[in-house]
Design a protein around this nucleic acid. Structure first.
Lengths: 223, 223
DNA sequence: GTCTATAATAAGATAGAC
DNA sequence: GTCTATCTTATTATAGAC
């Protein structure tokens, strides 16, 4: 390929794009976005640093420059996806509604939430395959998730005192019940839909399942 | 290391263990068992053929001899774990019970089932991370899983005609509901227990959750 | 059928120029 | 801060003896 051996005369283009100055934040975020795509698609062990670099407007060197290792990059991806999702959980304004309607709204929100955020569901699966080791090392993630339990607890106590809900239901238990359905429907959709020949993406099926979990939770809560 | 260059005089021990003759079936099964442990612990991409060989009483060469590739070995692991679990689902003898008791028994069975078979839960997660591609290629797995839906459908129709269950509940939908809770409790236990600070292994908690899903399903089914 | 040794390649991480 | 080129090690897979 070389037409001359005067290497000093070759390609003086360390500056990324013509005329544009360096933009560290943008570069870093660009890498993080690419990493999300790769980790979500391939898992932690399956993801390739080279593949992440290819999805980037920059180079593999920059990944190590900003994130030091594949593991640390993964940890940031995990925090980002958890953060994105937990933040949307605020501003549901359940206090204004009566308990039974509020719980219904919360269930529907959780359902849609998982349905729209397949990436989040996948990264949580991946993290569990790795025994939650990265979640355990992130106080941020734990802190982010307290909100939903507090909301639910407040709601349960309110319904309880009004005599609309039965006594003594634990917020975390109920969250487990709601999440499990909403999560599993997405996380296991490949095996479930293949084995039982059901199209989980179909709008009618989706609505039926949403009604199902709503109905199931409200019936469970009645005294 | 060599103290002599007469290589012909060295180590004539291709025969595995002293005096014992070759045992192909045993060797093959030994590899499969080792592969289960490794794939379940590390996932498909995370599993190392060398690590599987180390867990074996034989060598890496034998893995390729019997299974041709890492992928094919994984596919057999998947079939084996699905097969093991589906087979135990028969012989529940629900026909003898009245519908509401039968469904309760089925739910409890499913709960315990997942609780006892963490390996199965993990391999299903792993398979879903890989978009269920191997399940799709295995007619065996699909065939094995029809039993549970048939059982459930028969039960639902019986309860329906006796007026004990509400009309029109779909067996696959209900199976989704029951499975999701039982599965998620295991599959996501690492992140869930860390984030919400709950000990899912605790016997009291476990019993509470078992009651919860039972209660929830029976309430859902009532007319 | 089974073993040890090794080839071929892929992947994480780094060097060094600019 | 960014790039290209490369080092090192790990990993899948195979050769060839017995």
């Amino acid at each position: 390929m070389k037409t001359t051996d005067d290497s000093l005369a070759e390609a003086p283009l360390p500056v990324p794009v013509k005329g544009r100055k360096n933009n560290p934040e943008k570069t870093r975020d660009n890498i993080l976005q690419a990493a999300i795509v790769e980790f979500v698609a391939q898992g932690l062990s399956g993801a390739r640093v080279d593949a992440i670099a290819e999805r980037t407007h920059t180079s593999k060197r920059m990944i190590y420059y900003y994130f030091n290792s594949k593991e640390q990059l993964y940890a940031e991806v995990l925090e980002k996806l958890y953060g994105d999702i937990r933040r949307t959980e605020t501003g549901l304004n359940l206090d204004a509604l009566e308990p039974m309607q509020a719980i219904q709204r919360l269930v529907e929100f959780t359902f849609d939430h998982h349905d729209r955020n397949v990436d989040f569901v996948r990264i949580v699966c991946i993290e569990n395959i790795h025994n939650g080791e990265n979640v355990k090392q992130s106080p941020t993630i734990r802190a982010l998730s307290q909100n939903i339990v507090e909301t639910l607890d407040k709601l349960l106590r309110r319904g309880e005192s009004e005599g609309i809900f039965r006594q003594g239901v634990d917020a975390i238990d109920l969250h487990l019940m709601i999440s499990s359905f909403c999560f599993y429907r997405i996380s296991n959709r490949h095996t479930f839909s293949e084995i039982f020949q059901i199209d989980l993406v179909d709008e009618q099926v989706k609505q039926r399942h949403k009604d199902m979990i709503c109905d199931s939770v409200t019936r469970y809560l009645r005294p």
